[in-house]
């Protein structure tokens, strides 16, 4: 009985203590912000949306490699010899056209890992946090400054240069092979002469060896030229921007 009274008293007391505390809060100040009218000032460190300053981007793709979710998609085209893209504000020379620089903010997990490897500090997190969209595809941010026409143009140029280079290479390889063949013929002629003399057996063997190595050399050169030429015709098919090729996801 005494225990019951004590318990009841303790219950009432704790209830009144609690009501006292909530009562103090009832008249106390509020801590919330009335959001659309009042906005919290984010600290300058805050990470909310990825942004790329394309003027400074050199197309090194380090950010794309650092991204754990593959939300950055970069396609670069090497510049042709007649174009100088200039330098970034940090002094790095720009050697690539950035035909595609897409960031899918719907995929981004705000981990900050892409920001640190950037050599020119051109990719960073903004404080803008109100960028929701009704259509998910609007969250695919395209940073490339080139218009589709320009992209085609640049690609064509690069392709032409690549073909040109390849041609030069092929030419070189052909010349080399030609030289080797001439040399071989010459040596064969010498050998025949030596055989006629009956004295030049040792140099003839040497010549045969030299001819044998020269031929694979030529084949090698041709192969190198072939691979260099390959990507150029293949690249136009990759131009579809909305279909984000997720190459690293295998």
């Amino acid at each position: 009985m005494v225990q019951a009274v004590k318990n009841s008293w303790a219950t009432f007391k704790s209830i009144f203590t609690g009501m006292g505390i909530t009562g103090r809060h009832l008249v106390g100040p509020t801590v919330t912000l009335q959001y659309p009218e009042e906005r919290a000032t984010l600290p300058k460190n805050a990470r909310a949306r990825l942004f790329v300053n394309m003027d400074d981007c050199i197309g090194c793709t380090l950010c794309a490699k650092a991204c754990p979710v593959n939300c950055i998609d970069i396609e670069t085209v090497p510049t042709t010899a007649d174009v100088d893209l200039g330098k970034t504000s940090t002094g790095n020379p720009k050697r690539f056209w950035l035909t595609r620089f897409n960031i899918d903010m719907a995929k981004c997990m705000y981990c900050d890992l892409c920001v640190h490897p950037c050599p020119t500090n051109c990719i960073y997190m903004e404080q803008e946090y109100e960028y929701s969209e009704y259509d998910r595809s609007n969250l695919l941010y395209k940073f490339s400054q080139l218009s589709p026409v320009e992209v085609d143009d640049v690609k064509a140029k690069a392709e032409a240069e690549a073909i040109q280079k390849q041609k030069e290479k092929e030419e070189k390889a052909r010349q080399k092979a030609e030289e080797a063949r001439l040399k071989k013929e010459q040596e064969a002629a010498e050998k025949a002469r030596a055989a006629d003399d009956g004295t030049g057996a040792v140099p003839a063997a040497d010549a045969a060896k030299a001819a044998g190595t020269a031929a694979p050399d030529a084949a090698d050169a041709a192969r190198v030229a072939g691979t260099a030429a390959k990507p150029a015709p293949g690249s136009p098919s990759k131009q579809d921007d909305t279909q984000n090729p997720s190459k690293g996801e295998a």
């Binding site: 009832l26 008249v27 100040p29 509020t30 801590v31 919330t32 009335q34």
Partner: peptide, 13 residues
């Protein structure tokens, strides 16, 4: 509103 004020909020505004 009472809930809001007790919880240091403002409630519907």
């Amino acid at each position: 509103k009472v809930a809001g004020f007790i919880q240091d909020r403002l409630g519907p505004m």
